[in-house]
Design a protein around this nucleic acid. Structure first.
Lengths: 121, 121
DNA sequence: GGCCATACTTACATTTTTGTTAGTATCCTA
DNA sequence: TAGGATACTAACAAAAATGTAAGTATGGCC
């Protein structure tokens, strides 16, 4: 019978770190796919099947999972349109739109950093 | 001898995602400890032993590992001062200082988001 | 000689994240 | 009646991140 350590330092550290707003913010958008999804939605809402086509390397599981998390975290809105076959659309929320200018800056910074690294060597 | 699947989708996806500057930037600072370390260094350089005291929940292994990565990525500078016992100091680099205003905005955004979530429910 | 401090490294274990494959329900169309 | 399209879900497997515990080298101090 496998022992479980629910009080593992691992999960304990988690909570502590979330005390930092910065860490909290990064947690919301980190992971392999989240920003990619948000980027796709930036130009306007998309339905599930389109998202899947736009992100050819994501697995169904991950797409569904990340969408659910993003929704739970209030970063996207899910809307179901009645009909058969079913149709579900995803859109950015006001708060995640406020993130856009910041992620643009981060993007610039990333580009600058990358250039520095390749030039520097 | 353990088999390695170098062609796993996992590592494959990694490379693809790094094509995005945003993703690249987030990769540099994500992980449980990196921004925490950067935040500590913000006010000025610190030596290893001080960092460890300031981050009571990090393990030696992780601290050393993250410091090495941060250095490799050009985000901090490591300086060794001769003597016994040895003394090593870490400082932010110019490029990581340019990150500060961005991370401050992200921090504000995180605070706003958190408030929304607690209020909204 | 034995212990202390510093700044790490190493081997191994556990937890967390991501991927793979197959399956669900509905109704339309051929 | 069989197969297609949509938007998922579930069980299992692999990979990646983090944690634990112990060890290394140097020289000063008692």
């Amino acid at each position: 019978m496998a022992r479980r350590k629910d009080t593992s330092t691992n999960s304990f550290n988690r909570e502590i770190l979330n005390g930092s707003h910065l860490h909290y913010a990064l947690d919301l958008i980190s992971g392999r796919w989240k920003i990619l999804i948000l980027e796709k939605l930036r130009a306007g809402g998309l339905r599930y099947s389109i998202l899947r086509k736009e992100l050819p390397h994501i697995s169904e599981r991950m797409l569904a999972l990340q969408l659910k998390e993003l929704e739970k975290d209030g970063l996207i809105t899910r809307s179901v349109y009645a009909g058969v076959p079913p149709c579900v659309g995803y859109t950015l929320t006001p708060i995640s739109e406020k993130l856009i200018p910041i992620w643009e800056q981060l993007c610039c910074w990333g580009a600058a950093h990358r250039e520095l690294q390749t030039t520097g060597n």
